[in-house]
Write a protein that binds this DNA or RNA. Structure first.
Lengths: 253, 253
DNA sequence: GAGTGGTCTAGACCACCTT
DNA sequence: AGGTGGTCTAGACCACTCC
């Protein structure tokens, strides 16, 4: 029952109460909550009020609702770690690319689909690649799957000048991936920079990544530089935050 | 006006339409949307339906609503970049700690409040610090502000054994921060590892960080190791995802 | 005081899942 | 068939902001 005189909105009281019961383990992961109609009775509020409370918990990522079945406490997803070691030259020598290397190491059946197109660099691409706006660039738009499930979206951009005549403009970039092709054509890589952020997904991303409500995405923009400091590739990645964790390691000095 | 025969729920049609107008710039950042009652008329739906549409956009972080004023397109927040260089030994020599160094470099007036307590290591802390569960640890619970606004929460844990008799058990750890004190007592740091993830904030975090709805938090767990590979500190940080971006750089080999 | 968003009700009907 | 969540209505009153 909610306290009508407290000044706290009824749906917040219901949400808080359910949240406490979930975090206390009273409703265990995977377990079903009482039905909305039952909650209506037990808290003495209308159904829209109960639904607003449940909506809050869904937006927080605490529960998921399944049409015709019920509302369930969301069990924590198993988290994949991605470490920077996946980009070592050594790893490239044995594999097709970073993602396939990663998946193979974990027993997934990986698959990717790639669309290649050519564009003029927009302001952001121009800034990261240190080229003029409007310069022709090669864009590789990839969807990566593990056991059929989409796990990562990635858009890679390179100055067209560097990719002409290489397998980077093909669907299959060959052993070692695009980075190996760049090095073969004389652009030996010197360093990587990754910019990591997070935000809520667009509806489109939510569909593609099959995200539950209340699950943000991690965005990673990686820029690859040659040994002389010239940027040669930028790669925008989008990952489901409930399935990925990124790890970085560096010496203290 | 919504299409009743399309099978697409009315509130989704309204949300999609508004979303398009926002991303197309028809409603510019900071600009006010039509009032809910106006939207009721223009789309021919009831007010709860309009509100559900607006709720969607709010959960996506596209708009904020202000009681008594209106609904506004959320302007992008200015993003602070945090790079791993902030942890260099050289930077420590000139400053009190990583956060103060960061803020000072940017013209903020930084302030922190610290609560120190002693606990027994839980399973997670024990795993990261390579100690037995139940071992006594020192916990430094910090709230960091820039110009009075909370921007970061951080909980640092170290084996008590390493902090006894040092300024790490004081509110003010002194010049160079806790890492400098560790090095002074003979625990020269060898490397750092950061694990980066994202999730929706707890209501508590949302309040403390003054997060708008639809803004996730970035979580960073940093573990500091000595030169012989012994973990000496773990630091759990929580940052507002609309205000921070993390940068990591490493050589190609 | 007029306009705004915030909360809440008491229903109704639909779509989906299970038995 | 019966239970579940999903959608929607037509109101009502409140709290806040601005003029």
């Amino acid at each position: 029952m909610v306290d009508r005189r407290s000044g706290v909105p009824a749906f917040r009281q219901v949400a808080s109460d359910l949240r406490e019961k979930i975090t206390a383990g009273e409703y265990a992961p995977g377990e079903q909550l009482p039905s909305e109609r039952e909650l209506v009775d037990s808290y003495g509020v209308s159904r829209p009020t109960v639904r607003e409370a449940v909506n809050m918990l869904r937006a927080e990522g605490l529960v998921t609702s399944e049409h015709g079945r019920g509302v369930f406490v969301r069990p924590p997803a198993s988290i994949q770690r991605m470490s920077r070691a996946r980009l070592s030259r050594e790893a490239r020598e044995r594999n097709r690319g970073a993602f396939l290397a990663d998946a193979a190491a974990r027993g997934f059946t990986p698959s990717t689909s790639v669309k290649i197109r050519f564009e003029q660099a927009d302001q952001r691409a121009a800034a990261h690649l240190a080229i003029d706006e409007g310069t022709e660039i090669t864009v590789r738009d990839r969807v990566m799957r593990a056991d059929g499930l989409v796990v990562q979206l990635a858009v890679s951009r390179l100055p067209r000048e560097l990719t002409r005549g290489t397998a980077i403009e093909e669907v299959d970039t060959g052993a070692g991936g695009a980075y190996a092709r760049l090095e073969e054509s004389g652009h030996r890589l010197g360093s990587f920079v990754e910019h990591v952020g997070a935000r809520m997904p667009t509806p489109d991303e939510a569909t593609q990544l099959q995200l539950a409500e209340g699950v943000p995405v991690i965005t990673v923009t990686r820029v690859a530089y040659t040994e002389d400091g010239t940027p040669v590739e930028m790669n925008d990645m989008v990952l489901a935050a409930d399935r990925y964790e990124l790890s970085y390691e560096w010496p203290a000095d």
